[in-house]
């Protein structure tokens, strides 16, 4: 059984309310999902809360997994990323923004080194290559939206341009990406 098949089988059993399968799924996947929460939120207490939310959602939504056609790890990552971004946006609204502080960057930020890039999945390499073809600020915009949950309103405020202008930039970049990825 490949790891992918195994995760998929575990999700299917969780959909049938199998608590042991849920525990196994947690053992297999929680370190990756916690790593994402930490890296997005840069705050351990928040990351712990969000991880709890993430697994409650996984338990409740396991039955919907097949319907959306993602690979199982992508499905789990999407849930974790979504929950972490939600929390980060709320923290920013409440002024408890955890801005990318230098120390936090050093602690939590790890850009892929050459070795990691060499091992990367083909999708990861393709996306990295296509992002590199965009203007650097546009590629950074895509990353910030995905990893920091930046909203159009925030980007418009930061850059002093109209919201729809920012949105037009991002949409154009996304269409460029789509074409580059073989859309």
């Amino acid at each position: 059984m490949t790891p992918r098949d195994e995760i998929e089988a575990l999700i299917a059993r969780v959909a049938m309310a199998d608590r042991r399968a849920f525990a196994t799924l947690y053992v297999r996947t929680s370190a990756k999902l916690y790593g994402i929460c930490i890296r997005v939120l840069r705050d351990e207490a928040m990351a712990e809360d969000v991880l709890q939310e993430v697994y409650v959602r996984i338990w409740n939504r396991a039955g919907q997994y097949r319907a959306n056609r993602f690979s199982p790890m992508t499905w789990l990552i999407a849930i974790a990323r979504h929950a972490a971004i939600d929390r980060l946006r709320r923290a920013r609204r409440e002024g408890r923004a955890v801005e990318p502080v230098e120390i936090a960057e050093r602690l939590y930020d790890t850009e892929p080194g050459p070795a990691q890039q060499a091992e990367a999945r083909s999708e990861a390499r393709a996306l990295a290559a296509c992002l590199a073809e965009l203007a650097e600020d546009r590629a950074e915009m895509v990353r910030r939206v995905y990893l920091h949950g930046q909203t159009y309103a925030e980007m418009a405020e930061a850059s002093g341009v109209k919201l729809n202008t920012v949105r037009t930039w991002l949409r154009r970049s996304l269409m460029q990406l789509r074409e580059c990825l073989g859309g």
Partner: peptide, 21 residues
């Protein structure tokens, strides 16, 4: 979603504290 999920591929995994489960 599959493509964007690769943006977290290089994030290091971290064991959560045992109390979380």
């Amino acid at each position: 979603t599959e493509y964007f999920a690769t943006l977290v591929d290089h994030f290091p995994a971290r064991e959560p504290p045992p109390a979380i489960f």
